[in-house]
């Protein structure tokens, strides 16, 4: 089984990298990009039967810093 964890900075935490991307898109002539947030995707190959709760624990312990980041888990 595979889990995909998406980690994003929480709303309200300044994302200067996202801002830089927004500026760069504007410089390329793309109009109407009002905001960009950059995050990361972590894909986990897991032994079959790994409980989703274990992935949640991995997120809280290591994969995300919940002071500044939110995370979303998709299991496939």
């Amino acid at each position: 089984m595979r889990a995909r964890v998406t980690v994003m900075l929480k709303d309200g935490v300044l994302d200067p990298q996202g801002e830089a991307i927004r500026h760069a898109l504007g410089a390329l002539g793309f109009e109407g990009v009002e905001g960009v947030r950059q995050g990361k995707v972590i894909e986990l190959d897991l032994a079959d039967g790994t409980p989703e709760g274990a992935v949640d624990a991995m997120c809280r312990r290591l994969l995300a810093n919940t002071v500044i980041e939110s995370y979303r888990i998709e299991v496939a």
Binding site: L9, V13, L14, D15, P16, Q17, A20, N65, V67, I68
Partner: peptide
């Protein structure tokens, strides 16, 4: 120390990148 929970808060990318 922040990541270890010995101090509160977190340090993120400099505002000016």
């Amino acid at each position: 120390l922040c990541e270890a929970g010995l101090l509160p808060g977190a340090l993120v990318r400099n505002a000016g990148i």
